[in-house]
């Protein structure tokens, strides 16, 4: 009997506390800065083109093979407006396959891909699975339009291990190890 009274007392005591729930669609929890949504590409405002050169490092290291990337010669390089010899031509990420492991961000040589840390990439429900295959345009939009204000750029787990990212003389197509 004593135990049951204790249970009832505990229930009433806790019922008096402030609720911790958030009424979701109307109010949202604040996402932490390093929140890992889906990978998106960054836009280089200085040269008005994507950072991505289409070197396919991310596609090769992706555990789920959710990416398809191709590259082309950068027309702006010939005009002398950009340091990138090659530039991404097409880029598809199948968000339905992606397991948000962050490996593409870690291996990227050009810091061109980040995990979206806005609510936009958390609310990804679609009626058709095909709508979750993002093309280059959709992948660049958050960065290009300024929705993605402050992406978490610290990771580079491989960089910790003594491996230095190449940023100067950004040459595409570094396929060989």
């Amino acid at each position: 009997m004593l135990g049951i009274l204790k249970t009832i007392a505990a229930t009433f005591g806790i019922a008096a506390r402030k609720p911790v729930t958030v009424q979701y669609p109307t109010e949202r929890k604040q996402l932490p800065h390093r929140s890992r949504g889906f990978p998106t590409l960054l836009w280089d405002f200085e040269h008005d083109e994507p950072f991505c050169t289409g070197c396919q490092v991310c596609a090769r290291y992706c555990p789920t093979d959710c990416m398809t990337v191709t590259m082309k010669d950068n027309p702006k390089y010939a005009e002398g407006k950009s340091p990138r010899k090659k530039i991404v031509d097409t880029f598809y990420i199948d968000y339905a396959r992606c397991m948000r492991c962050d490996i593409c961000v870690e291996v990227c040589n050009f810091d061109a891909i980040v995990m979206d840390n806005t609510w936009r990439s958390v609310e990804m429900s679609r009626f058709d699975r095909q709508d979750l295959v993002m093309d280059l345009d959709a992948l660049l939009r958050p960065s290009k339009t300024g929705l993605l204000k402050n992406p978490f750029r610290d990771p580079m787990g491989v960089a910790h291990s003594g491996w230095v990212p190449k940023t100067e003389g950004a040459e595409g197509g570094s396929e060989e190890e």
Binding site: T64, D65, T68, D94, Q130, D135
Partner: peptide, 17 residues
């Protein structure tokens, strides 16, 4: 092999577009 599947899906997406 999941590559084939991936390719075919992409093709379908392009066709739809």
């Amino acid at each position: 092999e999941i590559e084939d599947w991936q390719e075919s899906l992409l093709e379908r997406v392009e066709k739809l577009a």
